[in-house]
Amino acid sequence: MSETANLTARLTALANPTRFLALAGNLVPWIGGASALVLAVGLGMAFAAPEDYQQGITVRIMYIHVPFAWLAMFCYAVMAASALGTLVWRHPLADVSLKAAAPIGAVFTALALVTGSIWGKPMWGTWWVWDARLTSVLVLFLMYLGVIALTRALDDQSRAARAAAILTLVGFINIPIIKFSVDWWNTLHQPASVFRLDGPTIHPSFLWPLLISAAGFTLLFLTLHLMAMRAEIWRRRVSAMRRMSARAAEGKLAEGQAS
């Protein structure tokens, strides 16, 4: 009795990634289409939105910069949730999700840094200032790269999964501390002379395009994440099959000798 239960459980676990592959395969075109649509609307509205009276046309980069920055954090939250899934529930897909999300998150963070830098050039006169917010995002970027390096460094999948999960969670717990200390460090050195966008009031004519394009980029992230997870599952299968074929070649040889 317990044996059959065991077997069913194992079969479900095995079938899980397969079912996920089929489900994600069906889902990806729809989410991809939706993200393209929402992005088109959001960016269209962004170009229709009025220019800022102080910053002129440069403010338009906000409509992509803010979503990138939002996704940089959202993706890390997704990774932290996946890390919990790996460590607590040992869910086979959680590890795939973490590994697939890391490069996407790193790219979004890099884009946030680059767009921030492009935005900052006319505002500050240099490409980079050690402003608290930018610096925190830079530290986040370093953490992403660390997770990527770790997932690539270990050959053994299950060990790599647990190590990356632990690192992600420790990083997640550390984020508020890092944010606080960077803010403190920054105010210590720089009085509040740096330009900041976030005022208490942001005009609705800016807000709506921003929200819609943020939603569009979030959908884009989900699409990319699902695709990356599918790719990762296939990659693991290919690797498993190659190992199997090494063993199979041996079996065939033994048969050939016997006959």
């Binding site: 200032v129 050690w130 610096t135 830079l138 530290v139 370093l142 790269l145 660390g146 990527i148 390096a149 690539r152 460094a153 460090w185 920054n186 050195h189 720089q190």
Partner: peptide, 20 residues
Amino acid sequence: LTGVLFFLAVVAVIPFGVGP
């Protein structure tokens, strides 16, 4: 990748030490 990451981290840490 590790080398580049180390380089990046070393350079990024300096301003925290000497100020921005």
